[in-house]
């Protein structure tokens, strides 16, 4: 049986981890490679690096980061943030990234999904969707939830799937940062509607929230940042409890 995946997410700027990392025993909490290595040792199934660098040097710093991670980490990882064209994706693939995550660039130019899937295969293309309720309608947002678009969330996800998305990373901006649990209602609706894997994101605050998201929505993976970075939830403990609930984990 395919295991449900637990995915820590790391925010990176100029090649350094930027927020919310408070591990003990870490020589350098700002070193994404050391942090990644720690997570892989703890039993993380996959990692997501979200690059928020906003300079002209960004592609170069991302490629260097990806190479360092690929050299030292023995689990798969996804790179997101600022990927706008085929050349960005090509550079990251050749540096050892397993997947790339596209958000705004795909919303602005949906045909980019088709191009990426054709060039690299659907398994390489994760579409990240930030959603927020807008007048009671789940709406795709850009820039970390600040800018609403015209797109209704589920219809955009279905379009992304039909264009060649290999996986959906769905973040509820209404839940993100609340630590009140994942948006299980929306996640179930999306997960039931698509035939590609769905990663739940936004709202994880306790072990129970991971149990709930897997039991109530059957999504393939759950992503979180601060609960892992601050050591509030330890991955081996989380997996033991999930296993005890007959949720298949590695």
């Amino acid at each position: 049986m395919l295991a449900k995946r637990i995915i820590p997410c790391l925010d990176v700027k100029d090649g350094r981890t930027v927020k919310g990392v408070n591990f003990v025993d870490l020589r350098d909490a700002g070193d994404p490679v050391e942090l990644a290595w720690n997570y892989s040792r703890q039993g993380a199934d996959e990692l997501v690096f979200l690059d928020i660098t906003a300079t002209h040097e960004r592609r170069k710093t991302m490629v260097e980061l990806v190479k360092s991670v690929a050299r030292q980490i023995n689990i798969p990882f996804t790179i997101g943030g600022g990927i706008n064209e085929i050349a960005d994706a090509d550079a990251l693939l050749n540096a050892g990234a397993d997947k790339i995550s596209i958000n705004s660039a795909a919303v602005r130019n949906p045909a980019l999904i088709d191009e990426l899937a054709k060039a690299f295969g659907v398994q390489f293309v994760v579409i990240a969707v930030d959603t927020r309720l807008n007048n009671g309608i789940n709406t795709v947002h850009l820039n970390g939830g600040r800018i609403p678009t015209e797109k209704e969330t589920l219809s955009w996800i279905l379009e992304a799937e039909s264009r060649g998305a290999g996986e959906i990373l769905l973040t509820s901006m209404d839940h993100d940062g609340t630590k009140a649990g994942f948006d299980n209602g929306l996640l179930k609706k999306v997960n039931d509607a698509v035939n590609i894997p769905v990663i739940a994101s936004g709202g994880a605050g306790s072990v129970q929230h991971f149990i709930d998201v897997f039991e109530q929505t059957n999504v393939d993976a759950a992503l979180a940042a601060s609960v892992f970075h601050y050591g509030e939830i330890l991955i081996p403990d989380l997996k033991d409890i999930l296993r005890g609930r007959n949720i298949e984990v590695r």
């Binding site: 398994q123 035939n195 993976a221």
Partner: peptide, 15 residues
């Protein structure tokens, strides 16, 4: 073949 319970691509850790 693919189905809601067995999505394609088969992505992740399996036994």
């Amino acid at each position: 073949a693919g189905s809601p319970d067995h999505k394609v691509p088969h992505t992740g850790w399996n036994r």
